[in-house]
Design a binder for these strands. Sequence first.
RNA 1: GGCCCCAUCGUCUAGAGGCCUAGGACGCCAGCCUUUCAAGCUGGUAGCACGGGUUCGAAUCCCGUUGGGGCCA
Length: 490
Amino acid sequence: MSDSAVRVRYGPSPTGEPHIGNIRTALFDWLLARRHGGQFIVRIEDTDQARRVEGAEEGILEALRWLGLDWDEGPDIGGPHAPYRQSERLPLYREAAERLVAAGKAYRCFCSPDRLDAVRKAQQQQKLAPGYDRHCRNLTPEQVDAAAADGPGVVRFAMPREGTTVVEDALRGAVEFRNELLDDHVLLKRDGFPTYHLASVVDDREMRISHVIRGEEWLPSAPRHVAQYEALGWAPPIWVHVPIIRGADKGKLSKRHGATSVRAYAEQGFLPEALLNFMALLGWSKDESTTIMSRAEMVEAFSIEGLGLASAMFDLERLSEMNARYIRALSPANFLERGRPWLEAAVGREVDLGRLLPLAPSIQERVKLLPELVDYADFFYAEGALEYSNEELMGRGYRGKPWAALEALEAALRLLRGLEGWDAAGLEAGLRGLAEERGEKPGALFTPVRVAVTGKRIAPPLFETLEVLGREATVGRLNAAAERLARPDD
RNA sequence: GGCCCCAUCGUCUAGAGGCCUAGGACGCCAGCCUUUCAAGCUGGUAGCACGGGUUCGAAUCCCGUUGGGGCCA
């Protein structure tokens, strides 16, 4: 197979937000395409009219864009095999179904839902494998005409009754299925829309798809697809059924495991690079030691052979850790810019990020998720009094001794008011000197200052914080703290 | 229940018969560093599901068991 023949597709259904498990197959599609200089195609599989959700298609494309998975052909940009929405390709499916019917490889079925129900119940009672009983498979042309007068019915595929169908899976080799265990599945529904089975096969063929990468949950229906390729006289694509992603309870990852949509992760402050890197490592690995990889490195190293067979568990802890590493690797300016939406939402107005720049690196190494920037920076933009208790203010060093804390704050105040210059180094030298002079541990003195100035016990490094805050605001906040201490606690 | 897939530290994985006394990463534990919190550094903890084969030799191959998962209902 030549590289240029690699054509892969991502076929999401517009039924909601794109799911992590689902989008990971898109990532593998994309990686394979880019690795071999092939094409990555987005095809909207909207044949289930009932489950269609307004706006879902745009959400899917947006998720792909956010992750940086660009496509070469798709519903929005078209391409040589347009249209890329299955609902707009109905004639193709009908034609294929008719061809199969004409060849005796498929047939029209007029069984009512009630009858199907009854058949299923009877099978259950007799502990037989459930499935369509092929009632309409051998209708005479006269019978078909008569039945068709009452409605079009459905078209079913006439599965071979004997022998086996082999699915040649690129990861597991030959997987055999006994044909007698496969019932005659529906190809064309009563409403004239195709089922997944028909539409995906027809489209994959028409779009010249070389590799079908999809979740393992499709393996049981793969023999149906193989049989259809045979019946239509087409060569099947290379099948790649990738392991499912599981939640913490080992079951298939789904909504009940919490956030699963790409959008939800974006909103929680995960970086697309981190999510991408994390997803790639769920079921694939570059070598024995690499865990952090750029998109380009992933593309260069990707191969189907590198995919594993065991399903992997989605570990949020790992994703968070990876996100933290990616955040630390960001340039300070870029980091602030990415955190801006959360900071501005918290502060309630537009914010000048420039002044935070000197502090950004030390915030970056304290943050796992973008919104945590708020905890380390909102006090710079606070206008009124900060919220904290006297207990927090005193810290461990002056616990239960407000007078001592007050004294310390006043000493700090005197020092800072008269300090020459206002930079982190000078502030550190001054405050350290003061602690030494007073014969106490630096930490004891620094805590009241930190809380007074930030309103929190956990904050960015103190001296840089003071530098950024400026003398006026610092002195103001220390004064406010001293006044609080002078009053009895309430 | 039937069919199918899978099985290495808690988690993600490396390993394609001797390089394995099973490697890396996350987590966890301990220590160092330290103005809070982090980050960083050092060390440690922990695994080839089980039983049979095949072979001079098996985490690696075969069979079975067990376990987990998926699909159909």
